[in-house]
C-alpha cells in the first residue's frame, strides 16, 4: 500500500471544495475536523465493492474510476471522477457498504471525511444536512442518467 495518511493537526479546509461551498462555519469546522488528506498512486484502490463505506471523498486532484465486476469477466469502468467532484453515497445509505470498486487512474489526492462523524454532523444540524443532501442528489441524478444512457446504448441505435 502506498496510501499515505498525512497528520492533520488542523482541520481540513473542506470549504475549498465546491461541494462544501456556502455551508455554515460551525458545520464546516465540525466536518473538517473529521477529514484527513489521503493520496493514492495510479492503479491503487480506494475501496472495494461490499466493504464498509467508512468515508466520503472530496477529490482534490487526479482521477478515480468506479468499476463493477462484469459477471466473471474483466471489470468494467462505468464512470470516472475527477478534481472538484465527490465519490460515494454508500456512507449515507444503510448498510453502508460500497457498491463499486474505486481505483485511482493516476496519482490522486483526496480529502476523506469520516462517515460516522459526517452522519453525526448531519443529524445534529438538519438544516446543514438538508443542504448537503441537496448537493448530493444531483450527483446521484447524474449517475442515474449515466446508467440510463448505458442501458439505452444510445450510440448503437
Amino acid at each position: 500500500m502506498t496510501d499515505t495518511r498525512f497528520p492533520t493537526p488542523e482541520r481540513i479546509p473542506i470549504e475549498d471544495h465546491p461541494f462544501f461551498h456556502g455551508f455554515d462555519a460551525g458545520f464546516l469546522h465540525r466536518v473538517g475536523a473529521a477529514a484527513e488528506e489521503r493520496t493514492f498512486a495510479a492503479d491503487e484502490f480506494l475501496f472495494h465493492e461490499g466493504t464498509p463505506a467508512r468515508a466520503f471523498y472530496l477529490v482534490q486532484e487526479g482521477k478515480v474510476a468506479l468499476e463493477i465486476g462484469a459477471g466473471g469477466g474483466p471489470p468494467l469502468t462505468i464512470q470516472t471522477i475527477g478534481a472538484r467532484e465527490v465519490i460515494g453515497w454508500s456512507w449515507l445509505v444503510p448498510p453502508h457498504r460500497w457498491r463499486f470498486d474505486a481505483r485511482a487512474l493516476k496519482p490522486t489526492r483526496l480529502h476523506s471525511i469520516d462517515a460516522a462523524a459526517l452522519r453525526a454532523a448531519i443529524d445534529a444540524d438538519p438544516l446543514q444536512g438538508y443542504r448537503l443532501l441537496r448537493r448530493l442528489v444531483p450527483v446521484l441524478a447524474e449517475r442515474l442518467e449515466m446508467a440510463r444512457l448505458q442501458v439505452l446504448d444510445v450510440h448503437r441505435r
Partner: peptide
C-alpha cells in the same frame, strides 16, 4: 474524450459528455 464504459486498459474519462462541460 469520454466513453460510456471501458475496460481497465482505458485511463481516460468515462461518463456523459455533459459531465465534461464544467471542464
Amino acid at each position: 474524450v469520454t466513453v460510456d464504459a471501458a475496460g481497465r486498459e482505458w485511463y481516460g474519462d468515462v461518463g456523459l459528455v455533459t459531465a465534461r462541460l464544467p471542464d
